[in-house]
Amino acid sequence: MNLTILSSVFRRALRNISASPYLHMAATGTIAFSILIIGAFAMLYMNINDLIGSWQQNIRVVAYLTDKVPKASIEPLRQNIAGLYGVKRVRFVSKDQAMARLRSQLKHRQSLLDGLSENPLPAAFEIQLIRAWQSWGRIDPLTEQIKAFPEISDVEYGEAWLHRFSAFISFFRLAALIIGGLVFATAVFVCTNTIRLAIYAKRAELEIMRLVGATDFFISTPFYIQNLLEGLLGGLIAIGLLFASYKLFVANVQAPGVFMGPFQGRFLSLPGTGALLAAGMLMGWCGSFLSLKQFLKP
C-alpha cells in the first residue's frame, strides 16, 4: 500500500458520502440512536451500581431488645455482639433515647406523642459493620447470629426491599444486555443495507475497478472508511446528547438530598466514552464487512 492508493480510497470514500448524503445521514442517525440507547443503559446501570454501593457502605443493623432485659445485662450483651465477626461498633439506644430521637424527627408534630401513656419504643443496639461485611450475602448469617441471643426480639436492616432491589438489578442487567444486543444488531443491519444500497448503486463502477486490476482492498476500503466515519460521527452525536441529558438531569431532577441522599450521579468515564465511540465504529465496520463479504465473493 502507498500514498497514491490511500489518497485514492479516502477520496472515493468522501465522494461516496457526498454522492448520497441522505443515505449516510440515515445510517449515522441510526448509529447515533443506538449508541444513545446503549449509553443511557450503561450510565443508568453504572449509577444504580454506585447508588447500591453507597447504600451498602451505610448499612446499619438494628437489633431490638425484649422489654425484660435487666440493665446489668445490657453491657455484656453489647460486648458479645461487638465481638462477632464483621461487627465494627455497637451502640446502645435506650427506650428514652429512642423516644427523644423520634420527637426530634417529628419536629412540629411532636404533639402526636403526647397522648401516649407509656413509651412503646423498644431499646435497641445500632450495629455498624466493617466494610467487608457490607454486602447482602454476609449480612444474613450475621443477623441470624444476633437473633440467636435470647435478649434480642428482632433484627432489622431492611432486608426485604434490599433483596427485591438486588433481584431488580440482576433483571435490569440482563434486560440491558439483551436490549443492547438487539439495538446493536439493528444498527448493524441498517449499516449493512446502507452499504448494500451504495454497492448496488455503484456495482457497474466496482465491476470496472475489478476489471482494471483493482484489489479487494482498493475496492472495499472506501466503504469501510465511510461506515467507520458514520460510526464515529454517530457515536459523537450520541455522547453529546447523553452528556446534555445528564447535565439537564443533574441541574433539574436531582435535587440535593432528595431520595438519593448524598449520592451524586456521574457521567461515563473516559474509557467508557471511548468504548461507546468504538461501539459506534464497530457497528459501521460490521455493516461494511457483512455487505462487502457478499459482493467480493469469488
Binding site: 502507498n2 497514491t4 492508493i5 489518497s7 485514492s8 475497478m209 482494471v212 486490476g213 483493482a214 482498493f218
Partner: peptide
C-alpha cells in the same frame, strides 16, 4: 487514472 492508481503508481507518473 483509476487503472494506474489501483496499481499504486506515483501521482506524478499518473
Amino acid at each position: 487514472a483509476l487503472v494506474i492508481e489501483a496499481a499504486g503508481r506515483q501521482r506524478r507518473y499518473i
